[in-house]
Design a protein around this nucleic acid. Structure first.
Lengths: 230, 230
DNA sequence: CGGTGTTTTGACGTCGGTCAATATGTGTGG
DNA sequence: CCACACATATTGACCGACGTCAAAACACCG
């Protein structure tokens, strides 16, 4: 069992303020888990007994709309924590979490979280800041989804994927998603998404090779994402 | 200056756990304010020096999209608290707050909030639960906005307005909004919204009289909101 | 090699946005 | 109380973006 006080990803999340005693307790209560690409971490409506701290890998958080299509709401990767909302509100999960990659995750039982929230104001404050950030992002997504055309949203998504997950050695987006996944982020039909991708390709702003996508003209893409260009 | 320990709305929000000493301090630091319909409480990008506790009235929280249209993200009314996200994250406001009604509001300075967060875990926990709830709502809105057609969203909005604010003595929705406001909630052009309202009217599910809207056939409207009927 | 799943392209219809004209309020001062 | 100006609501006509269905091209794998 690896020690939490040596864990690098902890530096970037709500656990970075814990003292050595609290970290030792964390090391003892946490459980390491491995998920393979496509595995479900938890599903909408499920009751969570703890949170998931991502050591390595990427998960997508999605929700089924009442018309039967998935909407991807958010990605979570190295250092980030999953399931905090449900644990804090003591409610069933509102979203489904699926591994996009092979993942290495630490599961931290609910009790540990609750107890620390009750006695450690700094810890609570970290959680609050985290959720405040998520809330701001969510509000921004609402505005974009409801007001921007699909091409603009697609451009935003591509830029966002680059910002969040970076590039591989050849300059392609590191995260590999199916066209269906991409359209489920953008909130559109798969075919529309494909069509707009090939449009962007024809215009010379991106290149694709199988699932891999490369952004070639980032500044023009930014203009499209801002609605200045179409 | 009225006393917070006698305030009814406190029972419904994050302040309901404070002890009598903390409440006395709150009474002394808070400032009562009155806003008239259309007044701006704060604007996107503005730095907030505290939170607003709504004693009476309704405010709309909106954000300007990069194509120049407003998107209403959320309403806040009696007992609810405004501006908490910005104060907690110590960031400029992400949304603009405008009074929909004449309002009676208590302004609570940032320092009071921060100090209590630092020493009172129960208080922090209340904030956390509040934000967890907001976050869930926001995620649900994202899914609806990106996946549902306008008529469905309009039906949902009407039902939501009824749930949140209730009816007046004649059975009309208590909250009075312009068509433009309604379309800014639904995320559509004003004319489209008007057209769909008159469609719902022709179909007999609602009645309108000026700005006032009455829901006549709530069960059918629910079916439309769920996408079962069109 | 065929079989299965994903990506791409084509054709077509419709939902919803835009512009413009008209109607209906709503408030103001006379 | 009326007349005028001005805002808001409603309706019509038109068009483009986007969703849907279907077929073809391509990839991946036993």
């Amino acid at each position: 069992m690896s020690k939490c006080d040596k864990c690098i990803v902890r530096k970037f999340n709500v656990f970075h303020f814990l003292n050595s005693g609290e970290l030792k307790e964390l090391s003892n209560t946490k459980v390491s888990k491995v998920y393979n690409k496509g595995d479900v971490l938890f599903e909408e409506g499920e009751h969570l007994n703890g949170v998931y701290c991502v050591r390595h890998g990427i998960a997508k958080l999605s929700k089924l709309s009442n018309n039967g299509r998935d909407q991807i709401v958010k990605f979570v990767s190295n250092g980030e924590v999953l399931g905090q909302r449900s644990v804090i509100a003591q409610e069933p999960a509102n979203l489904t979490a699926v591994a996009v990659n092979d993942m290495n995750v630490c599961f931290i039982p609910k009790n540990y979280i609750i107890e620390n929230l009750e006695r450690n104001p700094k810890f609570s404050y970290e959680f609050l800041k985290d959720m405040a950030h998520d809330l701001k992002e969510a509000d921004n997504v609402i505005v974009n989804m409801s007001q921007n055309p699909v091409k603009q949203r697609l451009a935003e998504v591509l830029l966002h994927l680059k910002e969040s997950f970076g590039l591989d050695d050849d300059g392609y987006l590191l995260i590999k998603l199916s066209r269906e996944d991409i359209s489920n982020i953008v909130g559109t039909a798969t075919e529309s998404c494909i069509r707009l991708l090939s449009e962007l390709k024809k215009e010379g702003y991106i290149t694709t090779s199988g699932k891999k996508i490369m952004i070639k003209d980032i500044s023009t893409l930014k203009q499209i994402a801002r609605g200045i260009l179409h």
